[in-house]
Design a protein around this nucleic acid. Structure first.
Lengths: 336, 336
DNA sequence: GGCCATCGGTAAAACGATTCAATACACGAC
DNA sequence: GTCGTGTATTGAATCGTTTTACCGATGGCC
């Protein structure tokens, strides 16, 4: 019933506990036949190392924490998968927290991570937690910011060039001959939204006569897309846009639904391009063009930055990896 | 740099470490002003309890493990959210593992959970791990099965009546006047698929003349749906079904895409009903009818069963909660 | 006044791994 | 025969909590 411990293993193998530990961690050479006796004993007893004891002694855990904004958004689960896959190659594990954009949940997860003495933390912060994160780092848990680099030069980070992504999207719409473009976005306070629309605006401005209508909505989900599309459909025909750039793919899906419902043809009447390139954009009824963010690779890179800081603590050169977005063309923006 | 510990707190507050512990855990009454001195000291030092030490002493962690089949399937993240929300009310936290349907990943996560001495485990098993789970339970970590109750009467479980779900879906298609129905499913080896199609088959058989065509595909994702739909479209018009029952919503989305691409009208030419009722079914270009599984509630109930077992260990009455699926009617199956 | 509870609090003994200084042993070299 | 060198192993100390046995003081009761 009570789980076997190193002492039991040592007794059965006829060695000391130190030797068992050496076998377990390969920290010192152990004679082959001794090692075999120990391994046999471990096997016979079904011994499983007590990680709490190990952690207490070593002072740090082997798990890494990640805090995401929204587990139900595939973009974030893709990042998490990249992190998880990479961590397993480092022989470490992951504990996942979901802030759900709530600052108080974020704080309670930070407490948890700190109690656990996580080896490191990947976070897309929602509240104002920078000083808290600095404390975490001072206490031995390095932190890497994911997709939020804003004026936080004192942490390593990975992000995507959202301004450029906005440019690319707008340029693509112009290239396929669209002349009246609308940006349907979430709250302007979200940095990503502001930069994507800014990039689109600048790209369009270079082309002179084409107007850009910007719709600001209060969410980044499909319902916002539906509301936005309905507003556009209500415009007099002359002002009605012939292309929509959605701030993310969830919104784009909402737009597509509302347009389909109203009988507008996509892309003939109105083209749609989204952002993130989630699975459900590629598999929509009309496959939706999108600006791809390399979510899995972002997860991997963030993890590698974190591992580097874990291995070289108190280093002060923070790296900021900026990924380039990529245009994925699908039917929703094909030439009429 | 080194984080403060109970001894430091005790020294600053002028009490013994035992008292600090009592304040922390409210295990024994502490005089109000003593408690205040302790809390002040904790605050001043920025003390955060070392969970590894606590765990070592208590013998068990305060976190619960959950192992899901596929984090990129919204159905499972919805379950996980239900679990997470419920656990926070019990003041416990969650460590999430993603087996990705791989038996070897599942095993390595089981190792992790056992090293961590998790308080309990929620799992949708993929490999043959029942004896391993029994060991886990014997060592103090109760286990509850999620969505896989198959001949495992020796564990509590939550699941959904898939046979009934299949019936409901087929009955609905008949009710809206469909006469040639196809079931597009994943591998028959997946129990859920077999039961859903079985339920549909029996419901249809009761209605005499209506045939049911069953397509077995090798995945449960959108690509399988596309392939299935193309096979159906290739049939001679007289044999072509006028309704598709997809084994899950991902497949339904693929079907919708292929039909749209081929110019078939949904629901006029072909109706579609899916299974799971994920977010992306409701927000598809043509909102897709679905058989809802109460994912969040399943997560909550599984957690409650687990907590009950944690509080009353070595109990042997295992409960099996079977949820009833619910028909959600949307445009994809409205009457022509 | 003697006895017993009750209340607040203390000190020390766990928990189970890792680590480090110490030692044992073998083997050559001189 | 001694010294040195290297390898293998030992055993005790340690990490930071919780818990248990115990203690002194206070007050109620007969």
């Amino acid at each position: 019933m009570a789980t076997a411990n190193v002492r039991d293993v040592a007794a059965l193998a006829g060695v000391s506990v130190g030797t068992v530990s050496n076998v377990l961690n390969q920290s010192k050479p152990v004679a082959p036949d001794t090692a075999k006796r120990v391994l046999d004993a471990i096997d016979k007893l079904g011994f499983i190392r007590n990680d709490a004891a190990r952690q207490l002694r070593v002072g740090q855990s082997r798990t890494v924490g990640i805090m995401v904004l929204d587990v139900s958004n595939p973009f974030f689960t893709d990042i998490a998968r990249g992190v998880e896959d990479t961590l397993t190659t480092f022989n470490r594990s992951l504990i996942l927290g979901n802030s759900g954009e709530s600052a108080s949940r974020e704080l309670s997860y930070l407490d948890l991570f700190e109690e656990q003495r996580v080896a490191g933390l990947l976070i897309t912060p929602v509240g104002n937690v920078l000083t808290r994160l600095e404390r975490l780092r001072e206490r031995g848990s390095p932190v890497v910011l994911v997709d939020r680099h804003e004026n936080a030069r004192s942490f390593s980070s990975v992000s995507v060039d959202d301004y450029r992504g906005g440019q690319i999207a707008a340029e693509h719409l112009l290239e396929v001959g669209r002349t009246r473009i609308a940006f349907v976005g979430g709250p302007r306070a979200v940095l990503q939204v502001a930069q994507r629309s800014g990039g689109a605006q600048d790209a369009i401005r270079e082309h002179g006569a084409v107007p850009l209508r910007i719709l600001e909505l209060d969410s980044m989900r499909a319902d916002a897309g539906r509301v936005g599309a309905e507003q556009l459909l209500a415009l007099p025909p002359a002002e009605r846009p012939d292309a929509v750039f959605a701030a993310n793919d969830l919104i784009a899906l909402g737009v597509l639904q509302a347009l389909t419902h109203a009988g507008a043809r996509v892309p003939d009447d109105i083209a749609i391009i989204g952002y993130d390139d989630i699975y459900f954009a590629a598999n929509a009824a009309i496959p939706i063009s999108s600006i791809r963010q390399p979510a899995w690779e972002m997860g991997r890179t963030a993890t590698e930055l974190l591992m580097a800081e874990i291995d070289a603590p108190r280093s002060t050169d923070f790296r900021h990896v900026v990924f380039q977005p990529e245009l994925i063309v699908r039917e929703s923006t094909s030439r009429p």
